[in-house]
Write a protein that binds this DNA or RNA. Sequence first.
DNA 1: CCGGACGCCTGTCGGC
DNA 2: TGCCGACAGGCGTCCG
Length: 271
Amino acid sequence: MPELPEVETCVRGLRPYLVGQQILSLQVRERRLRWPIALETDRQVAGQSIRELRRRAKYLVLELERGALLIHLGMSGSLRLLPAPTPPALHDHVDLLLGNGQCLRLRDPRRFGMLQWVPAPAEAHPLLSHLGPEPLAPGFDGAYLHRRAAGRRAAVKTFIMDSEIVVGVGNIYASESLHLAGIHPNRAAGRIAAGRYHRLATAIRAVLEAAITQGGTSLRDFVQEDGNPGYFARCLRVYGRTGQPCAGCGEPIRQRRIGQRSSFYCARCQH
DNA sequence: CCGGACGCCTGTCGGC
DNA sequence: TGCCGACAGGCGTCCG
């Protein structure tokens, strides 16, 4: 999936084209996503205008006149804006037909994504109500992480990927942030000093902001809404670079599984 | 409460 | 060339 920078890139790119548009109808070709798209969704959103498009964690939130349409891209989802008559390809599951003749198309080969209408406000939805802070918003800092980590024995990488702790830090950016902060991904979260959490919070923000600036990491299934890949992939320092020299010290990058996810790190730079 | 494992899907890649 | 297992950006749920 798209991680936070990819979703943010998507939101920023789509916003000028979506805000103010009326939704004429929803065409669902495959409703079996992470959760089935409810049969009444078309009836609920048809005729409503899009008031605003924003991001919360990795959810896209289309604020409508009544309620909101939540979209999550899962591991392999993408959104594109196309002329309405464009014939759908394999895995193009949902079309949102707009008043200006455009079509917002959701493609998701693995079907881990979701699309759901909720009565306002979106934050009341059970999937959003327990989410932790946004990493790029005020209030997310080293003191917060240090406090939440107290007594935790889980690996710090697993800890920062927990969306109740902080949202939007996926598998790529968790490895990247820990490398930048000089922290070993397998270190117990509760055994890291406050000063090092300050470095980690700063690193998380820096990595995410850099990725957003670059338009999101280019990976197999991600394209921006205009179809162009992002350019952050070339900036990755450890993710997917097993055996290649660490940019800081030259030591080969190591790979191991932490919490059932591949993790990349430098054993010399990260402790 | 916490942490670890599992499952949901399809596509791709490397090894034999 | 073909087959088969491992693995891929997420995350809710279950179990101990």
